Simulated scan of single mutants.
Amino acid sequence: MKISDLSTPAALVDLAKMERNITRMQSRMDSLGVNFRPHVKTSKCVEVTQAQIKAGARGITVSTLKEAEQFFAAGITDILYAVGITANKLPQALALMRKGCDLKVLTDSVQSAAAIAAFGLANDIRFKVMIEIDTDDHRSGIKPESAQLLEVAQALSVGGTELYGVMTHAGSSYDLNTPEALAEMAEQERSGCVLAAQRLRDAGFACQVVSVGSTPTALSARQLEGVTEVRAGVYVFFDLVMHNVGVCTTDDIALSVLTTVIGHQEEKGWAIVDAGWMAMSRDRGTQKQTTDFGYGQVCTLDGEPVEGYVMTGANQEHGIISRPDHPDLSIAKRFPVGTQLRILPNHACATGAQFPEYQALNRHQTVQTWPRFYGW
C-alpha cells in the first residue's frame, strides 16, 4: 500500500530512520566492548526486534511477561524481565522457563527474593535472578552501598535461584539536556552498578552480569569498565523528549502518526485533525523541558517539520493544530480539509501503545503492516 491508502490515524515507522538508529546504537556498544540487550517495550513488535538482533543485539529486555511470552513464541529465548517480580507472577514465569525460555527475573527486596527462592525449591527449578540497583534515586532498586544488597543476596542463596547479576536504569537522565551532564550521569550509573557487583563478589556471591542502561546514558557513556551489558529502548524510534535531552534530532525520529485535517476554527487559528490523545497518548513529556511540543510536532506528509506548528490540544479523537506563539488566521489555506500530516510524538513508547499495528514505510514510500503486542 501507499500512505494515501491508509485510514487515519495510523502509526508510521520510517524504516530508513529506524535502521539508522539501530546501527548507531549497536556500533556504539560494539566500540565500548559490551553486549547490547535492547529493551523492546518501545516497539513490542517482532519485526523491529528481529532487526535489532540482526544488527548484533544479544538477548532482549521486556517490561511484561506477556511480551516475554510473545517474543519467546517468535523464537527469541534470551529474555530479561526487567520489572520486579512478585509471587503471583512466578507461575507464569515458570511456565515460560519449562518451555525452554532462558528467562531472567528481577528483585530488590528480601521478601521478593525469599518468595522466588521458595517457589523455585517447591517446583524443582532454579530462577536466574538479577538484583536491581538504584543509582540515581529515580525509581526502584537498592542503593549500591546498602546493607540490604547482601541481605537480598543471602535470601537468594538458599536454593531455587541463581544470583545472575545486578542491573540499574538511570531514568533521571531524561531530565538532563547537556552532553556534560549526560556523561556524568552515565558514569554515575556505571560506577554505582559496578560497586554493587564488587560488594557481592567480595562477600562471596557470584555476580556474572553487570547491566546498565537508558538511551541517554548509553549514547553518552565515555567508558564502561566493569559493565557486561547495556540496555536501551526508545532509541529505536526516538521521540521529542529525546530530542530535548539532546541525543537525537527530529530527523532521527522514526515513529510518527499519520493524520488528516477534518476541519478548522479559522478565527482561533486552529486546524482540526482526526488524531487526538487516543492516537498521540496523553504523554506531555516535553512540557517540563526547554521546548514544549504540545502533543506533538507537525510535519508534512513527507516528514518535514512545519516550523512553529504543533498539536496544541487534544480530545479523544480530535487534535488541534496551531501556532502556540500567535494564531495563524490563514491556517485553512495552509492546511486545507483533506491534508495529510505526520505528527512526531513526545514519547514513542506511549504513542506506539495506542495502536494495534505499525505501518512500516520503506524508501519507495510504500507500507507493510507490522503487528504489535498488548497486555500483561
Rank of each mutant, 00 (worst) to 15 (best):
Q70W: 03
E187I: 07
G246K: 03
T61K: 04
T77V: 13
K128Y: 09
G246Y: 05
I262T: 15
I131G: 01
K17V: 14
Q289I: 01
A314S: 15
T168D: 09
D5W: 11
S214L: 04
G263K: 10
V245W: 11
A197F: 02
R334T: 11
G84F: 01
H326Y: 12
Q111V: 13
P144Y: 05
D102N: 15
K54F: 07
M185V: 14
A57G: 07
L329R: 13
V34N: 02
I85N: 07
L156R: 02
G308H: 10
Q368Y: 12
L240D: 02
G263T: 06
T8Q: 09
K89G: 03
V210G: 05
R199T: 05
A68Y: 09
A155V: 11
F205Y: 15
A118S: 11
A82Y: 06
R24I: 06
C101A: 14
I79Y: 09
A10W: 00
V105Q: 05
Y374S: 15
K128H: 12
R372V: 14
A117P: 04
R222D: 11
L361A: 03
R199V: 08
H169N: 11
F72G: 02
A122D: 13
T135Y: 11
I253F: 06
A122T: 06
G159F: 05
E304F: 09
S157G: 09
S112P: 01
I22P: 10
A206D: 15
Q70I: 03
E266I: 12
E229R: 08
M1C: 02
Y174F: 15
T178S: 14
N21W: 07
P91D: 00
A314N: 06
E304D: 15
Q289E: 10
E304K: 13
A10C: 00
W376F: 15
T217S: 13
H138V: 05
V337E: 15
M130K: 02
M1L: 09
V210N: 02
P216A: 04
H318S: 11
W270E: 12
H318D: 13
L90W: 08
S112F: 07
G338P: 10
I142D: 06
D78N: 13
L32M: 13
T312D: 08
L65Q: 03
G56H: 01
Q148F: 01
E180F: 10
L90A: 08
P356E: 14
A186P: 05
V227S: 04
G56A: 01
A206M: 12
Q359I: 00
G338Q: 11
R190I: 14
R372E: 03
L255K: 00
A113C: 04
N123Y: 10
I331F: 11
S281C: 06
A10Q: 00
T290W: 13
D202P: 02
G75L: 01
I22G: 10
L195R: 13
D251L: 03
I79K: 10
V247T: 14
I125W: 07
E225R: 08
A57I: 03
A360P: 03
V13W: 00
S281Y: 07
R342T: 00
E187R: 14
A57R: 09
P91T: 00
P179N: 12
L182T: 13
I331H: 08
E69V: 04
I343Q: 06
P38R: 02
G276M: 08
A114P: 03
L344E: 01
S109P: 11
A153V: 03
P345T: 10
